Computed example of a mutant assay.
Amino acid sequence: MNGPIDTNSWQYRQINARAPGLSYLANALIELVEEGHPVVAGTADLQYSNGLVRFAQRFPERFTQFGISEQNMVSAAAGMASTGAMPFVATFASFLALLCCEQIRTDVAYSALPVRLIGHHAGISLGFYGTSHHATEDLAIMRSIADLTVVAPADGPQLAAAVKTSVNHAQPIYFRVGRGQEPVVYEDGVDFQFGKAIVHGEGSDLTIIACGSMVHPSREAYRALRAAGKSVGLIDMHTIKPLDSKAVLSAAAHSRFVLTIEEHNILGGLGGAVAEILAEAGSPARLIRHGIRDEYSLIAPPTHLYKHYRLDAAGIEATVREALG
């Protein structure tokens, strides 16, 4: 179902302006192919939204346009992986994690095939497209599937680093990615290790543990609170599974409160994973889960939704202040 790429089209010319963070995905895949890795890529009619049109132009023989058939895309990726290829397939996170759950579980993870699943426009980042297009359950679903690694990069540079590191990772991976408009947190070439959190600072009052798109606003809140004299720490928990339990328990040992921040239902995602670690260890630290509180997300522009759910820097700072009393 591949067709010629119209490089003069409005979509192609606007791709970097619309989603600069996602351009890192295609660039990383191009680099891997040039290094000799057996990378192939595919998408479900979203090559302009996720930037894979750049990969398709560079390596058309390695790219498949599956059309609007997401489940078939995942099963086909499993088939490609069984022949020795390393497939990266991408579509909206709401479709990938929910619609394709059976194919991910049975065809990919159960079969232990090195498929890389890119769920982009995760959380509430699709705004006006509506609740059906919001992915606020995907972390809970994906982390419950055995032998599936779950990663939520904070920005484009970290996504690129994770993609490049994945060539040495035997397990299938679910990458939870935003809409490509997230502010940059890290420089190009940032070090990335699966299952190894990035500690930005420690605090005796409270430690924020954030993932994905929430790392940047959490960092802004963290800086404001530190400037105001609050002893607050910050951890980027980019790998949801396997979770860095040592980082969680270290934070709990040094802080009175642990606050998880996620663009996701507070049930089953990052907050749930941290709760399991703290409960099993018998930690005395109090956990506060901050996100969407077990409800279907509203429909509005993303900026309005982040403010409504207090997932912007101001909302996170206010949540911390309330916790500290």
Rank of each mutant, 00 (worst) to 15 (best):
Gln71Pro: 02
Ile141Arg: 03
Leu98Glu: 11
Thr136Leu: 10
Ala146Leu: 14
Leu113Cys: 12
Leu113Asp: 07
Phe66Tyr: 15
Gly130Tyr: 00
Met86Lys: 02
His134Ser: 09
Phe128Glu: 15
Arg116Gly: 00
Arg105Trp: 13
Ile141Tyr: 10
Asp147Gly: 13
Ser132His: 10
Ser144Lys: 12
His121Tyr: 15
Glu70Met: 07
Arg105Phe: 11
Ile124Val: 12
Gly123Val: 03
Asn72Pro: 03
Ser75Val: 09
Ser94Glu: 01
Glu137Lys: 12
His121Glu: 03
Val74Phe: 10
Asn72Thr: 09
Val108Glu: 05
Ser125Val: 08
Ala76Pro: 01
His121Ala: 11
Leu139Thr: 14
Asp138Ser: 14
Gly67Asp: 07
Ser94Val: 13
Gln65His: 14
Glu70Ala: 03
Leu117Arg: 07
Met80Pro: 00
Ala140Asn: 12
Leu126Arg: 12
Ala77Ser: 08
Leu139Ala: 15
Asn72Ile: 02
Pro87Arg: 01
Arg62His: 06
Gln103Arg: 05
Tyr110Asn: 14
Gln103Phe: 03
Leu139Cys: 13
Ala78Lys: 04
Gln65Glu: 15
Leu98Ser: 12
Leu113Lys: 14
Thr131Asn: 10
Leu126Met: 13
Arg58Gln: 13
Ser82Cys: 09
Thr131Leu: 05
Gly130Lys: 07
Gln71Ser: 04
Glu102Met: 03
Gln65Pro: 02
Cys100Tyr: 04
Met73Ser: 02
Thr136Pro: 07
Gly127Cys: 03
Met86Asp: 04
Gln65Phe: 11
Asp107Val: 05
Pro87Gly: 11
Ile118His: 01
Thr131Tyr: 12
Glu137Ser: 13
Ala140Ser: 15
Thr136Asn: 10
Gly130Met: 06
Asp138Pro: 13
Thr83Ala: 14
Ile118Ser: 06
Ile141Val: 14
Ile118Asp: 02
Ser82Glu: 04
Ser94Asn: 11
Ala90Glu: 10
Phe95Pro: 08
Glu137Met: 11
Ser125Pro: 00
Gln65Arg: 13
Leu99Glu: 11
Glu61Ala: 08
Glu102Trp: 00
Arg143Lys: 15
Arg62Thr: 01
His121Ile: 01
Met73Lys: 02
Ala146Gln: 15
Thr131Ser: 15
Gly84Pro: 08
His134Gln: 14
Val89Pro: 04
Ser94Met: 14
Asp147Lys: 15
Ser132Met: 09
His134Tyr: 12
His120Asp: 10
Pro87Tyr: 00
Phe59Glu: 09
Tyr129Arg: 15
Glu102Ile: 06
Ala76His: 02
Asp107His: 09
